[in-house]
Simulated assay, not measured.
Amino acid sequence: MLKRFIGTSTPDAGLLFARLAGAALLLWVHGLPKLLHWQQELAHIDDPLNMGRGITLACALFAEVVCPLLIAAGLFTRLACLPVLFLLGVSMVLVHPDWSVEQGQFGWLLLIVFGTIALAGAGRWSLDRRLAAV
């Protein structure tokens, strides 16, 4: 039964898993807390690019709420990975440059997951693939 579901293309199953798991983690750990506690986040968010705290938080919310939803659905997947990768890169390089690999492992792993998705695409089980077939 599993072989019939997965078929001969197991990379598609891996991409689906990476999309769903990575998006869920990013949304749950970073996006939803920022969305639910907007005022508290606004008071202490770092602004490494000097855009203003409000714009920085809005950009973070886009990358951590909207983009994970698009990635999970497999809609505009490669494009949706770009803001996530940019946010993670800025966070790891500019906001937390003093972190050791151990301290920043969650961020580095998310960079790996979303970088892989950006390079490989969404896979067969995605809205991107459905739209391309139309």
Rank of each mutant, 00 (worst) to 15 (best):
T56F: 01
P68R: 15
L25C: 15
M92W: 13
L94H: 10
R124S: 03
L61W: 11
G54R: 02
L85W: 07
P97F: 04
K3P: 06
L32K: 05
L88E: 10
G14S: 04
I45A: 02
R124V: 10
V29S: 12
I6A: 13
G123P: 05
L82W: 05
F106W: 12
L94F: 05
A23Y: 13
V134D: 12
R130P: 00
L16G: 02
W38H: 07
L87R: 09
L42A: 07
R4L: 02
I6M: 06
G89D: 08
T116M: 08
L127Y: 03
L16A: 07
L36Q: 01
R4S: 14
P97V: 01
A80S: 09
L2G: 15
L131H: 13
V113T: 08
G54Q: 08
L87V: 03
L26P: 14
L87I: 00
Q105G: 02
A13G: 01
V90I: 05
R129F: 08
L61T: 09
G7M: 02
G54F: 03
L110C: 13
A43I: 00
H30M: 14
L70M: 13
L87W: 06
P33V: 11
D46E: 10
P97G: 00
S126P: 10
A73W: 08
A13T: 05
P97L: 01
F106N: 12
G31V: 12
A80Y: 07
F62T: 11
R19C: 01
V84Y: 00
I55K: 04
R53S: 08
D46T: 06
V113A: 09
L61D: 13
V93S: 11
S9Y: 12
Q39N: 13
M92K: 15
W125S: 00
I117V: 11
C59Q: 12
P97H: 13
L119F: 06
S126K: 13
G115Y: 11
W99H: 15
F86L: 06
C67T: 08
I6F: 07
L32C: 10
Q103S: 03
G123A: 03
Q105P: 00
S91I: 03
V101H: 12
M51D: 05
V84Q: 01
A60R: 03
A23R: 14
P11Y: 07
H37D: 06
C59H: 04
L88Y: 10
V134C: 04
